[in-house]
Amino acid sequence: MDELYRDQILEHYKRPHNFGVVEAADLEYEDTNPFCGDEQHVTIKLGEDDRVAEVAFEGKGCAISTAATSLLTDELVGMTRDELLRLPKEYVLELLGIDISATRMKCAMLGLKIVKSAALGKPAEWEDEGEAGNPAEAAAF
């Protein structure tokens, strides 16, 4: 089996979960990977308890960015905005379950960055490369 392009990754790439747009979304954000121009658009509907009730994403991306956001959006229902902001990058890496090289880290983190930006309502000041990132700082906004 391929180390990087495991069946699970390819499955999420070819048939991403939660692909589309949530109608009448409460939170949404669109961003690009400046390295390659890939775009993702995340829409989130909150329930009466202010927790994520529905989430969807759309866009064009590579296997890694698409699978990462597909896997991530599977996990978000029931989370508060604060919990979204506290998600560390390791959360996505564990979902992916593969080694991500430095050159592909921006691909893997694109969806998480957009989810955080949607929760903040503005671009998340969040370093997605190198260090683990500091979700507490992001949450302090």
């Binding site: 392009y5 121009g37 064009k60 590579c62 890694i64 698409t66 592909r104 691909c107």
Partner: peptide, 19 residues
């Protein structure tokens, strides 16, 4: 996707740009 094309080509020692 072009990124994945480039990643797999690199395994063969073939360097192309994707983006």
């Amino acid at each position: 996707h072009a990124h994945d094309v480039s990643e797999i080509l690199d395994r063969h020692g073939v360097a192309v740009r994707a983006g």
